[in-house]
């Protein structure tokens, strides 16, 4: 499963420099930094969603 998560991550981050460049060009530096924070927050949310499921579902 490690190859699958690494592959999907790489397919996503392949576009990151271009997307961040576009945001920087259109909106400036602050929107680009805000975008970083938002996406990092989503990453943490994804980690936590998986954690909640792992800790509660086996009880059923």
């Amino acid at each position: 499963m490690v190859p699958l998560i690494v592959a999907s991550a790489q397919a996503a981050y392949a576009f990151a420099p271009a997307v961040f460049g576009l945001v920087r060009e259109v909106g400036g530096v602050t929107p680009m930094l805000v975008l970083t924070l938002v996406v990092q927050g989503l990453a943490v949310a994804a980690f936590m969603l998986g954690r909640r499921r792992l800790h509660h579902s086996p009880v059923r």
């Binding site: 699958l4 998560i5 690494v6 999907s8 991550a9 790489q10 397919a11 996503a12 981050y13 576009f15 990151a16 997307v19 975008l35 970083t36 996406v39 990092q40 989503l42 990453a43 943490v44 994804a46 980690f47 969603l49 998986g50 499921r53």
Partner: peptide, 12 residues
Amino acid sequence: TLAAAMALGLFA
């Protein structure tokens, strides 16, 4: 959720 978290984190 693990795949999404890794993809989002590395994207940022």
